[in-house]
């Protein structure tokens, strides 16, 4: 990896470690290898959102051309959000694409992702299914996102109704996660979710 990339990551690393957000346990970065090409990010779900109380793990890959090109970031923790794929964790965020600027850092990226969790942009979606639900059935969207946060990110809010529906499909022999995805997609209508799983 180019010298400037390594040096940047090393310095940014210190910046994040020293930052007040780390002190508040709001963001975190860890090195995954000695060559500074792969890192693990962590952001806390922002308060007053369905993601509150959850911890979301991110995969961060530093390209050879960093910081002239953005890091490649995706969610490893499953999340229900219009701008993040519920399947792959891929993120649709302008600063990770054409709006990247060389002065941005890991810290600003993590904070931007946290801001994205607070303010989704359903008109520029990554996950069309989630975006539609966000716009057409926002209450269900919030409950679903909160349920996913509880299940995958350690969030505190447990929704008994949704739990039961997942268990119900599981007892029919379906995989737990697939059942949850299908129910989430079908606005928690069990019959449609079952049909969806069988088709």
């Amino acid at each position: 990896m180019a010298n400037i990339a390594i040096q940047r990551i090393q310095r940014e690393f210190k910046e994040v470690v020293k930052s007040e957000e780390v002190a508040k346990c709001s963001i975190k970065v860890e090195l995954l290898n000695d060559s500074y090409t792969e890192l693990k990010g962590e952001i806390a779900g922002p308060p007053d959102t369905p993601y509150e109380g959850g911890t979301f793990i991110l995969e961060i890959k530093i390209p050879e051309t960093y910081p002239f090109n953005p890091p490649k970031v995706k969610f490893l923790t499953r999340i229900w959000h219009p701008n993040i794929s519920s399947v792959t964790g891929a993120i649709c965020l302008d600063i990770l694409k054409d709006q990247w600027a060389a002065a941005m850092t890991l810290r600003t990226v993590l904070l931007s992702l946290q801001a994205l969790l607070s303010a989704a942009e359903p008109d520029d979606p990554q996950d069309a299914v989630v975006a539609r639900q966000y716009k057409e059935a926002n209450d269900i969207f919030k409950k679903t996102a909160s349920h996913w946060t509880n299940k995958y990110a350690g969030g505190p809010n447990c929704d008994k109704d949704y739990e039961d529906k997942v268990t119900q499909l599981q007892s029919m022999g379906f995989d737990e996660h697939k059942a949850r995805v299908s129910l989430s997609t079908c606005n928690w209508n069990v019959e449609r979710a079952t049909e969806n799983l069988l088709s």
């Binding site: 040096q7 470690v17 090195l31 290898n33």
Partner: peptide
């Protein structure tokens, strides 16, 4: 596995 403080403390100072 490296820890967040790994770069600061033990190993060689960066660059």
């Amino acid at each position: 596995m490296a820890t967040p403080t790994g770069a600061e403390g033990g190993t060689t100072p960066p660059g």
